[in-house]
C-alpha cells in the first residue's frame, strides 16, 4: 500500500551522494538502504549508524549524526525510526488482507490439532503463544501419547531458526528503539509480517512500530482461525483449493520486486538462490523426523535451507567487501 507511505517529492529520485558532508566517502554502505535513499529520502534515511564509518560505537547512541544534513532535510522526512501509535495502526491495517489469507492456514492448523487430540483451548493456546505456523503444523503432526517432547521441541527450534536471521535483518532500523519495544515486537514476528515490515522500512517510513501492528493483525487472525478450524474439525477442506498456500509466495515475490537494487543485488541473490535450492534438494528436509520416529510431516518441509541461503549470501558479501 504505497499510498500510506509518506513519500517525498523533494528528494525523490536523488541518487545517494558519493561523499558525506565532511568528505568521507560513502563506501559500500549502499546495499541495504539504497532503496531508501535513492528512491525516497536521500542519505538521511540510512539506517542509523550505517552512515558513520569511523566510530562504530558512538553511532548507535547518536544515530542521526554524521548523516550529512547539508543535503537539505525536508521537514516531513522521518530522519529516524520512531515507535508510534500511528505505526502500530498502519502496520495493522496493511497486514489485515494478508492475515485474512493466513487465516486459511490457521483453519488447517486447527483441524490438524483437533485430529491430533488437542482441545480447542490447547490449540488456541499454542497459536497464541508460539505464533509460528509451519512449526506448529509439524508439531501437531508429531503429537502422540505420550508427547515426544524432545522431538517436538527440537523440530520447532529447527524450523524456526530462520527467524533469527530475519530478526537480525531488522536490526539496522531497530537499533533506535528501546529493548522493550524491540523484544516485544519480535514476539509477533512471522514470515508474512516480517516481509511487510521490511517493505515498509526499506521505503523509509521510519515506522518502528510497524512490526508490532502487523504482528497483532497476524495474531488476531491466526488465533481466531485456529479456533474455527479446531471447532469445525474436518469440515474445511484442503487449503490449496483456495490458493491460500500461494499467499506467502506472493508476498515474497512482491517484496523481492521492491528489494531488487540492480547489480549490487545480483551476487548475493544468486548465492542465496543457489544455496537454498541446493540445500532444499540435498539436505533431506524431513531429517528431523528421525528423532521422533514418525514420518508424518509431509505438509511442511524443514526450513534449514532458508537459514543456509541467507547466511551464505551474507558470508559472501562479508568476504567480497572491499571497504
Amino acid at each position: 500500500m504505497r499510498i500510506l507511505y509518506r513519500s517525498n517529492g523533494a528528494t525523490e529520485g536523488v541518487a545517494g551522494p558519493s561523499k558525506l558532508a565532511d568528505g568521507r566517502p560513502v563506501n559500500r554502505i549502499t546495499p541495504l538502504p539504497s532503496i531508501v535513499y535513492e528512491r525516497h529520502l536521500g542519505v538521511l534515511c540510512l539506517p542509523p549508524g550505517m552512515g558513520s564509518t569511523d566510530e562504530s560505537g558512538s553511532s548507535r547512541v547518536a544515530p542521526s549524526r554524521g548523516d550529512g544534513s547539508t543535503e537539505g532535510r525536508p521537514e516531513s522526512t522521518p530522519a529516524s525510526v520512531t515507535f508510534t501509535r500511528e505505526g502500530i495502526r498502519t502496520g495493522f491495517v496493511t497486514t489485515v488482507p494478508v492475515a485474512l489469507g493466513v487465516g486459511g492456514y490457521g483453519i488447517a492448523f486447527g483441524v490438524l490439532a483437533n485430529q491430533a487430540g488437542l482441545s480447542v483451548a490447547e490449540a488456541a493456546l499454542m497459536s497464541a503463544t508460539v505464533l509460528a505456523g509451519a512449526s506448529q503444523i509439524v508439531a501437531v503432526e508429531l503429537w502422540a501419547d505420550p508427547i515426544p517432547v524432545a522431538a517436538v521441541l527440537f523440530t520447532v527450534f529447527a524450523i524456526n531458526m530462520r527467524y533469527s536471521l530475519m530478526g537480525a535483518a531488522l536490526e539496522p532500523w531497530f537499533r533506535q528503539l528501546s529493548p522493550k519495544q524491540i523484544y516485544g515486537s519480535l514476539y509477533f514476528m512471522a514470515d508474512e509480517n516480517w516481509a511487510l515490515t521490511m517493505r515498509d522500512l526499506t521505503a523509509g517510513s521510519g515506522r518502528g512500530a510497524f512490526l508490532l501492528g502487523s504482528g497483532i493483525a497476524m495474531w488476531v487472525f491466526w488465533v481466531g482461525s485456529t479456533v474455527v478450524g479446531a471447532v469445525a474439525g474436518g469440515v474445511v477442506g484442503d487449503p490449496t483449493r483456495y490458493g491460500f498456500d500461494f499467499i506467502l509466495a506472493a508476498v515474497f515475490v512482491a517484496l523481492a520486486a521492491e528489494l531488487w537494487e540492480g547489480r549490487s543485488s545480483l551476487l548475493p541473490w544468486l548465492v542465496a538462490l543457489g544455496v537454498a535450492v541446493a540445500a532444499a534438494e540435498l539436505v533431506p528436509g524431513r531429517w528431523y523426523i528421525l528423532l521422533g520416529g514418525l514420518a508424518a510431516a509431509e505438509l511442511v518441509p524443514g526450513r534449514w535451507y532458508i537459514l543456509l541461503g541467507g547466511l551464505a549470501a551474507a558470508v559472501v558479501e562479508v568476504i567480497r567487501y572491499d571497504g
Binding site: L32, R162, A313
Partner: peptide, 23 residues
C-alpha cells in the same frame, strides 16, 4: 565492523530469495 554491516545489509533480499526459490 563495516564488513559485517555489509553482510547484514544483504540479508533481507537473500532471505526473500532463499524462501522463494525452493518454493
Amino acid at each position: 565492523s563495516e564488513r559485517l554491516e555489509a553482510g547484514l545489509s544483504v540479508l533481507p533480499g537473500a532471505i526473500v530469495i532463499a524462501i522463494l526459490a525452493p518454493e
